[in-house]
Amino acid sequence: MGGESRYEIKQEAYVKLALHAIKYSTSAIDGILVGRLLDAGSVQIVDAVPLSHSQIGLLPSLELALIQVEEHFGAQGLSIVGYYQANERFDDDELSGSARRIGDHIFRHFPLAALLLLNSKNLEALLKGRGKLPILQLYTRDSSKNWRKAETGTEEMTRLTLKEPSANSILLDYVSTEKWRDIVDFDDHLDDISRDWLNSDLFQ
């Protein structure tokens, strides 16, 4: 089933996770993907919730974040549909063990769960106007319960599409105005609970 699924990511989620990675460019970062099932094999990723920029996969804070995300977005008819991560090392484009474990947990509740790994090299090229390669690599679970990459240059790359084609232009606009400074992740919220982990005012 996972091999046939399609994923559409909305502009807000795409920009938010990219800004999270830009703000903490020298750290590993991660977050939760929230969305809905459009049909039997199609998932729409509506929002991204930045989680961490320090201790990726730390169980107590992760569990607390998952509970709050489920409560908030569940009231809107949305579910946790996946997880995203950017690695600490610029040249590291491999999915980490912690990402796979968190993905396994989400998969138990949402069998079309997606893992998105941000490619730092492609993001940098995009920001410098030198590249148009996708900044996100999609992984889904196969029938052997392994997380499998949708290989670049194959039909499977079309399994992850941007809802709004202008998303990269919007991202560049936000970067030019240093909007990435305003991103709050769950780590920041735990340090100061007055900071909004939902980033409600980010796009206003």
Rank of each mutant, 00 (worst) to 15 (best):
I135E: 02
R101A: 11
K179N: 12
L138V: 10
D185C: 13
T140P: 03
D91M: 10
L62R: 14
E164Y: 04
Y139H: 11
D104V: 11
S98E: 11
H72C: 07
G31D: 06
T161K: 13
N168S: 00
A18S: 14
F186P: 07
E8S: 14
N87F: 04
A167D: 01
N87I: 06
I32Q: 00
E94V: 12
K149Q: 03
V49G: 04
A13M: 08
G35A: 09
D173W: 07
Q11T: 13
D92W: 04
D30P: 04
S120H: 08
T140W: 13
A40D: 13
N199Q: 03
G97E: 03
H72Y: 15
D185I: 02
K179G: 12
D93A: 00
L138E: 00
S27Q: 08
T140V: 15
A75P: 01
A48S: 15
I22L: 08
D187K: 05
Y174A: 10
L118T: 03
Y84N: 09
S42P: 01
R195I: 14
I170H: 08
L126A: 03
L64H: 04
S166C: 02
D191M: 11
A18K: 01
L138R: 14
F107D: 07
I193G: 00
G82D: 12
G3T: 06
A28H: 01
L33T: 05
G153V: 11
S54W: 00
V15N: 02
I135P: 08
S176H: 08
R101Y: 07
K128F: 05
Y174L: 15
E63M: 14
L190A: 01
I106A: 11
V15L: 03
T140R: 15
L62K: 13
V49Q: 10
F110W: 02
H20T: 08
I45N: 04
T161P: 05
S54E: 08
A28D: 07
I22A: 01
D173C: 01
A99L: 06
L58Q: 14
G103K: 10
R100H: 04
S166M: 04
S98I: 07
A113Q: 02
G31K: 09
N146R: 15
E4T: 05
N146L: 12
E124S: 12
K23C: 12
L136E: 00
A28R: 03
L202A: 07
A114T: 11
L59F: 11
N146M: 14
Y174K: 09
L66I: 15
N199V: 06
L115M: 09
I22R: 06
A75Q: 12
W180Y: 15
R181S: 09
F203C: 03
L78E: 11
S5V: 01
Q85C: 07
G74R: 13
A86G: 11
S5H: 03
L162A: 02
